[in-house]
Amino acid sequence: MPDETRFQRVLFVLRRDWQLYLMLAPTVIWLLLFLYKPMYGLQIAFKDYSIFRGIAASPWVGLEHFHTLFGSDQFVRAVKNTVIISAFSLLFGFPVPILLALMFNEILHKTFKKTAQTIVYLPHFISSVIIAGIVITAFSPSVGIINYLISWLGFEPIYFLTKPEWFRPIFIGTGIWQEAGFSSIVYLAAIAGVSPTLYESAVVDGASRWQMMWKITLPSIMTTIIIMLIIRIGNLLEVSFEMIILLYQPATFETADVVNTWIYRQGLQGGQYDLAAAAGLFNAVVAFVLVIAANSLSKRYSRTSLW
């Protein structure tokens, strides 16, 4: 209809597909209430905020909190730790679910496959508090199995969780143990989508299982891998906050204190909401830039992107 206004067109589409929009409504409401409405509070990063004055009445202070942040050795250390822990988690943690999925795909014995999958999925369903308890117990200098083995081999027990140099490997290893199995489900689903005739064709061409894995399975799930990598990069600075809180102690702050734990201590424990909001905003902006960059790189080099 040539003389139809834009508003009339929108109204027509809304009327025609109202069931679809109704189904979409809960998600939109959730996004607005829990992700967009709180953004109003972001302004306290630029204000001298007081809970008694409220957000609107608190005076503006410009970038003062950001100057304070970057002048603080503790915050700079937290950023450095965040980047190091995230980078190593990505480096060691990201490939493990892919390898697990490839290995599960090669297991032909159904019972063995199901048992192995259940065992590696299980830690994901255990509360972080219990996982932390298991880790603390396992590395305990008095009753831990690791130190028992070390003593059995004739060495002195190590106080792992009080030594800064051991915190990162323990934390990253725990993360892999807890999540790698469950994360492999995405890749297994992608592998299930690979056409079986590709393998049959390769078998007739003379490919071995190993060649099929590298030349068919892996390239076929590359789109999924790249999308997961972009999402992972977007969450790069979101280091598992509660696990660090559960595992770290002042003796290991040097390597364990990350931006989120720093925000928690300053904001909730120290009552410096404005400074914590500035740190949180910094975290979010960096994450946003990382996602945009990863997506653009992926689009340019692999024809795969989130948007």
Binding site: S195, T197, L198, E200, S201, V204, D205, I216, P219, S220
Partner: peptide, 10 residues
């Protein structure tokens, strides 16, 4: 050598 219904191209 076999040619498949869905081409089986990589």
């Amino acid at each position: 050598a076999m040619v498949f219904q869905n081409y089986a191209l990589y």
